[in-house]
Design a protein around this nucleic acid. Structure first.
Lengths: 210, 210
DNA sequence: ATAGAGTTTTATCAAACAGTCAATTTCCGT
DNA sequence: ACGGAAATTGACTGTTTGATAAAACTCTAT
């Protein structure tokens, strides 16, 4: 009755798939799906193109495997926004974690940015279902906090957009950020500066209290 | 003595260059430099590929002409930030204008986003010189406002990053924004909702006043 | 050690690609 | 209306690209 539902992976298979996906992340995050080439990925993974295509039969398969694999990681911080926590620390934590993801996984951020920039042809469905439901759910939570007077009243969805955009900016626009901050301010400390600024912005805003 | 410094442009030349640049903006903003093809652009411009290449000899020339042409437009709102104005209205105006640019020129925004995402190989120099100097100058203005107690103290450069990222998000991540807001909230009104939210965020923040 | 699955390589293909060229057609000032 | 400049076209080139086939090699469980 066992019709071989999950072919067991060999050591080599596991290793090579990992190398391929890593090289593919480099290529796709930098050039987008169309701009990246299989040769480039094979080169980065240190193997011949036909050998790469032995593991992933089509270029598209590599790309989709990457997106699949990264999706959960990407949404996890929002998923763990806790309705029963204090709004301010919850928000602070969410912003901090999103910023850390930009610092630690910039390629992943750029991969998603590229995909969405190009019209999200391969994850449109996911955006309209899974992501939308998650945002709907968490928007209710935030809305509840606002109605209880524990947060200023504002559109919770646009609030999430603002958190995403400001934090992901440090991965997606890294080149620009570093060009502007220069070698001094643009070093490793830039993420702490960003964290400090974003905390001020999201909690207090910029208008001095009268 | 006249060694033909600026060959006069004919009517057809003017028209065709405009059509090409428009079609190129479609293509490059959606697929990036490497992902867009000359055939695609020629098709969009309604002419044959050799004819297109009669006006721009290389693909790269079209791309660079686009970037050149759009740069001034793109930086203009920041350039017109007025040191002698009131900080709050100045900020409000700047955010509003940047948001309007996302609404009215989403392709231009995506073109720059693509270029920077891909490491800014063709505008790196400009980022490190012209843009950086502009930001330095305006950061001083903002810093002055903060020192005078007319704005909360915060890093002015990261403040600009926040304004850029939140406003451009509505152009660059438009697909995602619309997927999440749905047909109801995602209609034309989304920019007014965004404007309202961003004003609340940047001026008051989210923490209720004690 | 060996058989067979698993892996890698060489050789190759057709399509897509950026760009060229010579020949033709259209435009426009006189 | 006409002559020369400007514009357009079809046919083509060399290269890159994604993908395939089959042969050769390597690993591993027995």
């Amino acid at each position: 009755m066992d019709h071989n539902p999950e072919p067991r992976k060999t050591r080599i298979q596991t290793e090579n798939e990992a190398r391929i996906l890593d090289a593919a992340l480099d290529a796709f995050s930098l050039h987008g799906f169309r701009g990246a080439t299989v040769d480039q990925i094979a080169d980065g993974a240190g193997m011949s193109k036909p050998n790469l295509l032995y593991y992933f039969r089509r270029k598209q398969d590599i790309y989709e495997a990457l997106l699949d694999r990264l999706l959960d990681t990407w949404l996890e911080p929002l998923e763990s926004l806790n309705e029963n926590g204090d709004p301010i620390p919850e928000l602070r934590m969410y912003i901090r974690r999103k910023l850390e993801m930009s610092r630690d996984f910039p390629r992943e951020s750029r991969l998603f940015a590229n995909e969405i920039l190009q019209g999200a042809p391969r994850i449109r469905k996911m955006l309209e279902t899974r992501l939308r439901e998650l945002v709907d759910e968490k928007s209710e939570v935030i809305s509840g906090w606002m109605k209880a007077g524990r947060l200023n009243k504002a559109d919770p969805r646009h609030m999430l957009f603002a958190i995403w955009s400001t934090t992901q900016h440090y991965a997606d626009f890294d080149v620009q950020v570093r060009a502007i901050l220069g070698p001094g301010r643009g070093g490793e400390g830039r993420f702490e500066d960003a964290a400090r600024f974003l905390e001020t912005l999201f909690l207090d805003g910029l208008k001095p209290r009268a």
